[in-house]
Write a protein that binds this DNA or RNA. Structure first.
Length: 307
DNA sequence: TTATTCGACCGCCAGT
DNA sequence: AGACTGGCGGTCGAAT
């Protein structure tokens, strides 16, 4: 659904991603309609000609609500009631970025966990105290209602939806089509959850970057602590607190995700690839890969190469 | 797949 | 008093 002051990228991203999705037989997986209350929609310096009216929402199985560049404006009554109607009928409703404000205004997020652009999280929580706003995730899936963080997270939310609708392989094909950073396509490995370094994660964010760049090396807790200029005890404590998992767990995930990227983009042998990302052997890689991604490295590479 | 080995983790406590 | 750090040691999970 489009409306005045819509964020173009938020509208375009789901459009592109769902439009490129194919089901197993190669047929388009979705029928897509863009609708708005009036035929002409203002979007920054552009005017969009939108061919469907809000009545299309009565028919939609999934409604995507993109961000508004001025979330402080209260959305039109007609839009809100159309969304309420769609939701009560059982349609899936997903918001991108500040689109969460529209869902919130329609009362659809009350009592639910939700997210939005990190800069707007506080405002959303202030205006709608009944929503549990989580600023630390890329998206929140409540089943029928989904919300996502800033622009880039639209990719992640769409992929998540595609994965659920079509399966991981077909979703991966869409990701590859969109030439999006492929690591985002992989499993639930969302360990980089902040869109921008926040004040709290200050010291730890820098360490994560260092770890990311030194995955190939042997990363003992001792070395990491030295790098962070602290004791092992304090390091594990702070790490767990700020990152949400232990250092070893984070490193494993980071290595698996890097392995995924290499599987998708290179022809390195599994053995070679394992040492390249810091695992001591292919056996270790396979074990962790299965744990995190759910398949084997070979299978993952095949699903990205076959078309 | 299993047994052994080794390091990470965390509760506890003392010191700052 | 309260917040924080860092060492100790037992337990548990990862690597071989």
């Amino acid at each position: 659904v489009a409306f005045d002051d819509v964020v173009l990228g938020d509208l375009a991203t789901p459009l592109e991603m769902f439009a490129h999705a194919r089901d197993a037989s190669g047929a388009p997986a979705y029928e897509i309609r863009v609708c708005s209350r009036r035929p002409l929609v203002r979007a920054g310096p552009l005017g969009l000609h939108v061919s469907h009216r809000l009545t299309a929402l009565r028919w939609a199985q999934t409604v995507v609500v993109p961000g508004v560049s001025r979330p402080e404006h209260v959305p039109e009554r007609a839009l809100l009631s159309a969304l309420q109607e769609a939701a009560s009928r059982g349609a899936r409703v997903a918001s991108i970025c500040s689109g969460a404000f529209v869902l919130a205004a329609a009362g659809l997020l009350d009592g639910l966990r939700a997210t939005t652009h990190w800069r707007a999280c506080a405002e959303l929580a202030r205006r709608h105290p009944r929503i549990q706003v989580d600023p630390d995730v890329l998206y929140v899936d409540n089943g029928q209602l989904l919300t996502s963080a800033g622009a880039a997270a639209a990719f992640d939310l769409c992929l998540h939806i595609l994965r659920g609708d079509l399966g991981a392989e077909l979703a991966a094909a869409v990701a590859r089509d969109a030439v999006m950073p492929l690591e985002r396509a992989g499993g639930q490995a969302q360990f980089i959850v902040h869109e921008a370094p926040t004040v709290e994660s200050g010291s730890m964010a820098r360490l994560l970057v260092w770890l990311e760049q030194n995955l190939k090396r042997e990363l003992s807790l001792d070395k990491i602590a030295k790098q962070a200029h602290t004791s092992t005890r304090t390091l594990s404590r702070k790490f767990k607190l700020q990152v949400g998992m232990t250092p070893a767990q984070w490193i494993i995930k980071a290595r698996v995700v890097k392995a995924q990227r290499l599987l998708e983009t290179t022809d390195l042998s599994i053995e070679r690839l394992a040492t390249e990302v810091g695992f001591r052997s292919a056996t270790v890689l396979r074990a962790h890969f299965a744990q995190v991604v759910g398949t084997s490295p070979q299978a993952h590479r095949r699903s990205f190469r076959s078309e």
